[in-house]
Simulated assay, not measured.
Amino acid sequence: MEFMVSSSVSLKLMVILQEKLLKRMGSLRKMTQEVQNSLNQEANKTQWLENYAAVRKVMIKVQYQRMHLFLREEEQLHLEALEKEVKETLQQLRESEFRMTQQKESLKEMYRELTEMCHKPAMELLQVRREVPSRTDLVQMQKPQPVNPELTSWPVTGILDMLNNFRVDNVLSQKTTIHNVSLSEDDTTMIYGDDHHGVSRELQGAESFVAWGAVAFTSGRHYWEVDVTHSSNWILGVCKDILTSNAVISIDSEEAFLLFSMKVNNHYILSTNSPPLIQYVQRPLGRIGVFLDYDNGTVSFYDVCRGSLIYSFFPSFFSSPLKPFLCLRSP
């Protein structure tokens, strides 16, 4: 009788332990997939960063060509520092990929071990019941963190002094407050207001301040600054048409040169359009300078606090008047 009771208790205990092991296995499968997703993203970042670094080198060269000849030495130093930083960041990304690959293999090995444990006798399961949770918890604690590639924004000597020669004030004279900002399904129209017909991506629930120029630029060079200190999500730049009707404002994204800032999962993403491009530089925290050289077909953005370049669109032919534009979303 005592033997039967003992066997029954052991059987129940074994079932309980097997259920716990199955839960741990499910957790490990999920962790393995998460690491694989992170690994894929990290691998993509390497290629994106290499391409971005090449583009950024060209932008920097263009900036220095506008300066006097005595800045050539600073240009060379700037490029060398960028090259060194890119190499260091690429190495960090490769090391991060390696760590993630190692953890993925560790998770797979632990999963195989747990699979084997499920088929072991009850007494052996009892011996390892405390070891399994501690090992999986340790793996979770050692989960590698993804690298956030961000290049230093080196100052360009004298650039703000030069740009201030073309300064214009009060360029954002038309203003309004709205509650929704949306982008059409084909990414060609940005809509601000309550009309969401045909919209696939929306930033809702927060009030936004929108301002634009009453007068469009058709020639010459123009520079102005925008304060984004108190906003995490914003859009600024120049665009062709701004259409207003009732509570709706829309702009044609194909005729716009814009800089975007968006906060996603406690990380800030800085990007531009035409074509969409992530900017791997330090996010500006204060004033942003916008320079429109209409005759030469360029639009550039500057971090005023650091005196550095954020991004410069490659020269194009402007066939339409362009208006300054700003959208600040409430924190």
Rank of each mutant, 00 (worst) to 15 (best):
P146H: 14
T101Q: 15
A81C: 10
A54G: 06
L114C: 13
L160E: 09
Q91E: 15
R167W: 02
N148F: 04
G158D: 12
P133H: 09
F70L: 00
I178T: 05
T152R: 14
L71C: 11
L151E: 08
Q63D: 07
I60C: 07
E83N: 01
V156S: 01
S96K: 04
Y52R: 13
V55K: 13
K104A: 10
E85C: 01
F70T: 12
I178S: 09
P121V: 01
Q47A: 15
P155I: 14
N164I: 00
R99G: 09
S106V: 03
M67E: 15
L79P: 11
L125H: 04
S134K: 10
V147M: 05
C118D: 00
Q140R: 10
Q142W: 08
P144C: 04
K120V: 03
A81W: 11
E109M: 05
V168Q: 04
S134G: 01
K87P: 13
Q92H: 14
V62C: 00
P155G: 12
L163G: 01
L82N: 04
P155Y: 09
M100W: 00
L160A: 07
E83Q: 05
I178R: 13
H68W: 08
G158L: 12
I159G: 01
M59N: 10
T176V: 06
R167K: 13
F70P: 15
A54F: 04
A81I: 08
N148L: 15
R135N: 12
A54M: 06
L160F: 05
T101F: 09
V147W: 03
L93Q: 03
P149L: 01
F70A: 12
S153G: 03
L79K: 07
E109Q: 10
Q103R: 05
P149I: 01
I159F: 02
V86R: 02
Q127Y: 00
E50N: 15
I159R: 03
R72S: 09
W154F: 03
R129N: 10
L163M: 06
T46E: 03
V58S: 00
N170S: 11
K104G: 13
I178C: 09
Q91M: 12
L69F: 04
M162R: 10
S106M: 08
R129L: 05
P133R: 07
Q145F: 02
V58W: 00
Q174M: 10
I178H: 09
P121F: 06
P133Y: 04
E74G: 03
L71A: 13
M67A: 15
R66L: 15
S173I: 04
R135Q: 15
Q142S: 11
R130H: 07
R129W: 05
T157R: 10
Q65W: 02
P144R: 00
Q76M: 12
S153E: 07
P155V: 15
E80S: 11
Q140M: 09
Y52N: 07
M162Y: 12
A122T: 14
V86M: 02
T115S: 14
V168L: 06
R99Q: 13
E124Q: 14
V62H: 13
K175A: 03
Q92T: 14
Q92I: 11
K120H: 08
E75F: 02
Q92Y: 05
E150R: 14
V58A: 09
